[in-house]
Design a protein around this nucleic acid. Structure first.
Length: 572
RNA sequence: CGGAGCGUAGCGCAGUCUGGUAGCGCGCCUGGUUUGGGACCAGGAUGUCGGAGGUUCGAAUCCUCUCGCUCCGACCA
């Protein structure tokens, strides 16, 4: 491709509404342009990277035995009503009517449609297992789209759905996808972790998220420094080992703590570490129950663990009135003694004694608190958020490291949720009708490219790894008016094209500085500079974008050298 | 949906408090000089000041409504 004929609108300045680096760079490098909130044009350069990503996914999915198809973006309401999600999905589902006033939605995911395909076409267990996937544009009317392609409303996603006769088969399908995903992200040259995840409202027994490690990630994850265990902090278990309760040594005392509300304030006022305090969180659940949770003062509640424990959809901090009602005091002095609510404590509180809690009265706290002497705790459970340094719940030797991650893929074992409600059954070898056991597997295509940029850039621009780079080679024709330079550049360009290399020739009539700056910004991995200076002694310059390494090579050697590098990268 | 902020040239912004008929940098166009890291000189084009209504002799500026966008939070198979 010739730059002079291409559309590659680079920006010198950082667009004001781009927050994260990948968004800024994708705009500046002319890869994407915003059309509306969370909706983007994929400009020629951006599309090339997207296509590269898609191709890697396609190859690995096919290799894993999945079959590509393409489902419609416009989904009829009937299918969604049948699964019950027409009502449940809420405003994120973009709904519209056709000319006959029939209800439709833009597909945010395709369980319903794919289940419909399979129930209409698959009758026998002999047709199983089946894994159908598509690479397609999805629409979710996100409350808050942000970060460019990272969280758009319209976005390209690869979604796959597996169908098996039984659980054992579904587990095999799941493992295949898990491995395919590892291959995909490895081939992209990304640093990532596959983490255990909360399976959320969709239910199901297992679920892994594929997280690209990046500071700007929206998810917090922990991984063991000595074994394979890694998990989203929403899910990460906290190891608790049975210990003898420490005998109470102190007497219960109610002390004055004027104006001391927060854990930090109370700890400082009493001159105790926060770990000697126990905080009492008053929470409301979606089942309209009020519960009190006890946690060591320096810990944080994992609300998902609590919601799962209580089997409710959500828990939220109670409103001020509710807190006043159950504690008899304003926010900041809640304590478990004499409290009118169910008391649940984190495991860690089991062996604590002689601690400090709120007094359920203004400016009062109890010190020297011990259970069960002073209060009765209804239940103990793993409720706190895992932290860096916590011992690993699997191998018990390692410690947690913590990371920020960008969720680029998710594999789920779905079970029979959709096949049952939508009557997707096959006959087994006994002639019995059985509900299919499903799995679903998503990869955010644009998000993965964005994540790759988060992980691969410097102050000058993109440093995309070769497999995702829009072009493999950039030939910079320094002065197109110099006949020799033009001829040499054209020769190299023609030879690279001939060799099947993806090459961009910068034949613009621009000053060298502009060409170099754009080259760094766009970040094509291999850059050849053809200038009068080098040609004098028959050489051109090769610069590797990622390493910065530069070398002068004789004209005759440059094309073979490039081909060799590209071939070498393909093998890894 | 709660909180905060922003809409002025293609992009980044000033001007708004204190009303007087719109400006800067980059980019763009023309000519010339330049050509290995975002050149220089000369000339030029570009705006319903997000929209509607109001106040006023006069509104980018004040008031009301509205639309869009961004950030924080909640939310997120």
């Amino acid at each position: 491709m010739r730059y002079s004929q291409y559309l590659l609108p680079t920006l010198k300045e950082v667009p004001a509404d781009a927050e994260v680096i990948s968004h800024q760079l994708m705009l500046r490098a002319g890869m994407i342009r915003k059309v509306a909130a969370g909706i983007y044009n994929y400009m020629p350069l951006g599309l090339r990277s997207i296509r590269k990503m898609e191709q890697i996914i396609r190859e690995e999915m096919n290799r894993a035995g999945a079959v590509e198809c393409l489902m419609p973006m416009a989904n009829p309401a009937e299918l969604w009503q049948e699964s019950g999600r027409w009502e449940k999905y809420g405003k994120e589902l973009l709904r519209f009517k056709d000319r006959k006033d029939a209800d439709f939605c833009m597909g945010p995911t395709h369980e319903e449609v794919v289940t419909d395909i399979v129930r209409n076409t698959v009758r026998s267990y002999r047709q199983l297992p089946l894994n159908l996937y598509q690479i397609q544009t999805k629409f979710r009317d996100e409350i808050r789209p942000r970060f460019g392609l990272m969280r758009g409303r319209e976005f390209i996603m690869k979604d796959a759905y597996s169908f098996d006769l039984d659980d054992a088969g579904a587990d095999i399908s799941y493992q295949k996808m898990y491995q395919a995903y590892r291959n995909i992200f490895q081939r992209c040259g990304l640093r990532f972790r596959a983490v255990e995840a909360d399976s959320g409202a969709i239910g199901g027994s297992f679920s892994h998220e594929f997280m690209v490690l990046a500071e700007s990630g929206e998810d917090a994850i922990v991984s063991c420094d000595s074994c394979e265990y890694a998990a989203n902090v929403e899910k990460a278990e906290v190891l608790w080992t049975e210990q003898e309760a420490v005998a109470p040594e102190q007497e219960l005392q109610l002390v004055e703590t004027p104006q001391q509300k927060t854990i930090q304030e109370v700890a400082a006022f009493l001159d105790l570490p926060a770990a000697r305090l126990v905080k009492t969180l008053i929470l409301q659940t979606s089942a309209e129950e009020v519960v009190a949770v006890l946690l060591r003062g320096d810990r944080e509640l994992n609300t998902i663990k609590l919601a799962n424990l209580l089997d409710v959809d959500w828990v939220l901090p109670a409103e001020e009135e509710v807190v006043r009602h159950v504690t008899g005091a304003p926010i900041g002095f809640a304590g478990p003694i004499g409290l009118d609510a169910r008391l649940i404590a984190d495991n860690e509180v089991r062996t604590m004694s002689g601690y400090v809690v709120g007094g359920n009265a203004v400016d009062r706290h109890y010190v020297g608190v011990c259970h069960p002497r002073d209060l009765v705790i209804d239940q103990f459970a793993d409720l706190r958020r895992a932290e860096q340094g916590d011992p690993c719940p699997r191998c018990k030797n390692g410690r947690f490291e913590s990371w920020r991650g960008i969720e680029v893929g998710h594999v789920f074992k779905l079970g029979t949720k959709y096949s049952e409600t939508m009557a997707a059954t096959v006959l087994d070898d006994q002639g019995q009708s059985r509900s299919l056991v499903m799995g679903c597997y998503g990869i955010g295509v644009g998000r993965t490219v964005a994540a790759a940029i988060e992980q691969n850039h410097d102050e000058h621009g993109l440093k995309l790894p070769l497999p995702l780079a829009p072009f493999q080679v950039l030939v910079v024709m320094l002065n197109p008016k110099d006949a020799q330079v033009r001829q040499a550049s054209e020769d190299i360009y023609a030879q690279l094209l001939e060799a099947g290399v993806e090459v961009l020739l910068d034949d613009r009539d621009e000053r060298p500085g502009i060409k170099f700056k754009d080259a760094d910004l766009v970040g094509i991995p291999l850059r050849i500079t053809v200038g009068a200076r080098g040609l004098q002694d028959g050489t051109v310059e090769l610069k590797i974008r990622t390493s910065g390494e530069q070398s002068a090579l004789p004209l005759a050697e440059i094309v073979p050298a490039l081909c060799q590098r590209i071939a070498a990268a393909d093998e890894t």
